[in-house]
Design a protein around this nucleic acid. Sequence first.
RNA 1: AUGGGCCGGCAGACGGUCGCGUCGUCGUGCUCAGGCACGAUGCCGAGGAACGUCCGGGCUCCACAGAGCAGGGCGGUGGGUAACACCCACCCGGGGCAACCCGCGAGACAGUGCCACAGAGAACAGACCGCCACGGGCUCCGGCCCGCGGUAAGGGUGAAACGGUGGUGUAAGAGACCACCAGAGGCCGCGGUGACGCGGUCGGCUCGGUAAACCUCGCCCGGAGCAAGGUCAACAGGAUGUGCUAACGCUGCUCGCUCAGCAUCCGGGUAGACCGCUCGAGGGCUGCGGUGACGCAGCUCCUAGAUAGAUGGCCGUCACGGGGCUUCGCGCCCCGGACAGAACCCGGCGUACCGCCGGCCCAUUCAC
Length: 113
Amino acid sequence: MLAKRNRITHGRDYRGTVRRGAKFVGSCTVTYIRASDSSSDARFGFIVSKAVGVAVVRNRVRRRLKAASFALLPSVTPGVDVVVRVLPQAASQPYGVLFEELSRSLTKGSVLA
RNA sequence: AUGGGCCGGCAGACGGUCGCGUCGUCGUGCUCAGGCACGAUGCCGAGGAACGUCCGGGCUCCACAGAGCAGGGCGGUGGGUAACACCCACCCGGGGCAACCCGCGAGACAGUGCCACAGAGAACAGACCGCCACGGGCUCCGGCCCGCGGUAAGGGUGAAACGGUGGUGUAAGAGACCACCAGAGGCCGCGGUGACGCGGUCGGCUCGGUAAACCUCGCCCGGAGCAAGGUCAACAGGAUGUGCUAACGCUGCUCGCUCAGCAUCCGGGUAGACCGCUCGAGGGCUGCGGUGACGCAGCUCCUAGAUAGAUGGCCGUCACGGGGCUUCGCGCCCCGGACAGAACCCGGCGUACCGCCGGCCCAUUCAC
């Protein structure tokens, strides 16, 4: 789980990251990465549309991704914003698959040490 | 034992590890203070439907003398409730051998409309076939044809054909008349708070359905919603006061106008923070009243408050259900655990759902 300072909490930060960040497409997620303030910690945000499923399914996918982000957090370059858009295929994926995909996207974005 | 009906309850348990949110405590740092940040630690942390947002309220703001119209909702009776379209009991109608279940249950002699297809005819109905009288014609003397009438007993159509059965009667028939039966209505009596039920009596009265068609009657309803509404500091703006310097106007000076700054007050409302925000028509137990829904009294408990939205990720053990193997020891293996996530709070309704547990009742069968 992520503490509040490691989460993106404003609509303008989401918009900025999605529009101007680097984009990496996976099989069940789309990841946007953008450097913001290097003095702060790395921040994560998640976009899960209703196409993914009902509220319980959306919550489960988001919580798995938050857990994966927390596990990767010590290795991530400080000061970057990461927004993960969840595709409908992610609904039935177990934690291991989501972790591998997030790790791969962050490596492509060269923010993973 | 099998099948069925009703009511109530549960929604895996325990543990490890890494975390998240509110609140409390402690420590460190910053701050005049209020407090803020970080770290540690403790308590608590989704549901029976949290869901759909379909009703009814509380709460908040706005509007409001009173009444009516329009619009919407409700509709057997009596009760429960803060209120309801909900619940309980009863009535009526329908289904079931029964336990029990089902019903958008006012009014169709206030009026208007509609009733497909079939059928001759569908609402103060209707002569197609048939039956019968009369007149005429033909005749193989059995009848047949034509015309004009009578007739709703029979045939056929339909969801429905203007009571049913038997008799009297008649040319043939008909509630035309009679007996019994079945309805609807008036009156009377009895029972019930009432819907209504039971009984008697009157006159042959026999009278379709549809109001989720218009409509009529009775009762109820002001509007918007926690993104309600409020507070704060920062920031446009306005008013008043004070007033340095420069510029403008005046022949020149004072005054005045404009203007930077400062002080006070007003005020806009976006992004933000905070309040609203969880103790409430609240839960549990016991007793009393009531057939029941429910009410009253006493004791007791405090049990989520997020805001890009916490309540989790990973793993283990044991129960539970299904299937298979079985050296038959519940021993081993495999699979499964649904529907679904609070967002101001309650009371309902509706919908989704793997399964499990308990109680009562009914029918059939067997044993005693």
